[in-house]
Design a protein around this nucleic acid. Structure first.
Lengths: 243, 243
DNA sequence: GAGCAAAATTGACGATCATCAACGACGATT
DNA sequence: AATCGTCGTTGATGATCGTCAATTTTGCTC
């Protein structure tokens, strides 16, 4: 188990949770051995960086536990959280496959476990396992369609609706159901990151949150969010789609 | 040549212009023969639709001439132009590879030539040519990074700066250089589409254009745009990056 | 616990935007 | 030529947002 593992060591006993949606799913024996040999597991504390934008790629990473944020920065200090990665997700594969430096940074948004797979192992895996390339392709296509959805929402929804949509997405991953039907979320991100995901300033997010509070559709206390009725919240957006 | 071809016919004489960046570049002889057999060339008039969001995929398309817009629609009549495709670009491959319906529509934004490659041909090509899958992968990664750039700009730039950036991108593809150093663009898109690409309403685009006019950095006459100094226009954004 | 830095909130104000409406321009059709 | 629908522009108005600033809260280190 995780608590028996120390940092920076490789453990044959630890098998990343790879569901059918993972790119590493369903490899044959020799490939699995290759993967196990090139894999190195590591635990990250909240805020610790997995890889940094601009750095040269040195293999890919696979999230095994926790939540990892994919972030883009610019020279002015602007920071935008582009994606959230969860257990089973492989990250950093784009710069690996294109042979370029990392175009984004990845950072643990809470205590997380991430495996690193070195260049040589993936290169060998890809060469001997053409299906793996197709897996990466489908993963990439999935991310691309996710990005297109995002672009569409950015162009058509108001900031309030974009925040509501974001909450609805987060409640699916991070929501805890209560006996009275309400749900709670422990937000994995700061208000500033929420703002960047919505595409506005953090002061504006603060004010939209205030309006959601007075409207009674969501209650915020630090990073704890309670939503009395997820259906009512979803109705704010559904109205737009059906109307 | 193109003018000797009629619609809906296959021509061995017509070889799509495939640069090194095209997924079809550098195929071997048998693969080329396979491609030629499954390919069907067609000319599209301005506004004609290549494929429609929601339809089942029936192969991929490759732009041979003109400009093709990739658009997403919703039930409310909202329309967002997500991408522009140019000669050498392959489109509609995502729904082909995932076996799903088209998630976007594609439409000729002017007189265009687009080849269609049927399911059987690509399936055979992919099976016998593993490098082709990697080409699709790199193309997909390129689009994904383009989408990330877009998301970053959507979150950090003002509407005016987003429009300026869009003009700078369009001038690279569609710009004509004049003797006095100025450049002109024949916009391939309507004001409404410009608005959707910037993420605002068409009335707002009209007003931002008005301000660009009074500031003297760009002159608009219908779809004709003249930019006295591309450098000055680029300076509006560079200031943000360097400052 | 004290101290500190970053995060978050709140207020004020000017700038910008979305919306509704009216109008002219343009192309396609009849 | 007349009609129609779409596109583009412009105006007016209320709502929202970005910015600057002050303040409080939070989280972390010592």
């Amino acid at each position: 188990m995780a608590q028996s593992c120390t940092k920076h060591e490789n453990h044959a006993c630890v098998v990343c949770h790879v569901g059918p949606r993972s790119v590493w799913h369903d490899l044959d024996e020799t490939a699995s051995a290759l993967l196990a040999g090139g894999r190195r597991r590591r635990e990250y504390g909240s805020g610790e960086v997995v890889f940094v934008q601009g750095e040269q790629n040195d293999g890919v990473h696979c999230v095994s536990g926790g939540t990892v944020g994919i972030r883009r920065l610019d020279d002015n200090g602007n920071s935008v959280l582009l994606e959230l990665a969860y257990p089973g997700d492989t990250i950093g594969y784009r710069s690996f496959l294109t042979g370029s430096e990392h175009k984004t940074s990845a950072e643990a948004l809470g205590p997380s476990v991430v495996c690193h797979i070195d260049r040589a192992a993936i290169t060998a895996l890809l060469a001997g396992n053409p299906a793996l390339g197709l897996r990466f392709l489908k993963r990439s296509i999935g991310e691309l369609e996710h990005a297109h959805d995002m672009m569409f929402r950015q162009a058509t929804l108001s900031n309030r609706h974009k925040l509501v949509h974001l909450l609805l997405v987060l409640v699916q991953r991070h929501g805890r159901r209560h006996s009275n039907g309400s749900q709670s979320i422990d937000l994995p991100v700061s208000r500033r990151d929420l703002a960047s995901m919505v595409g506005t300033r953090h002061e504006t997010i603060s004010r939209i949150i205030g309006r959601l509070e007075t409207d009674g559709v969501a209650h915020f206390s630090g990073r704890q969010v309670t939503i009395p009725s997820v259906e009512a919240l979803a109705g704010e957006i559904d109205r737009l789609i059906s109307a």
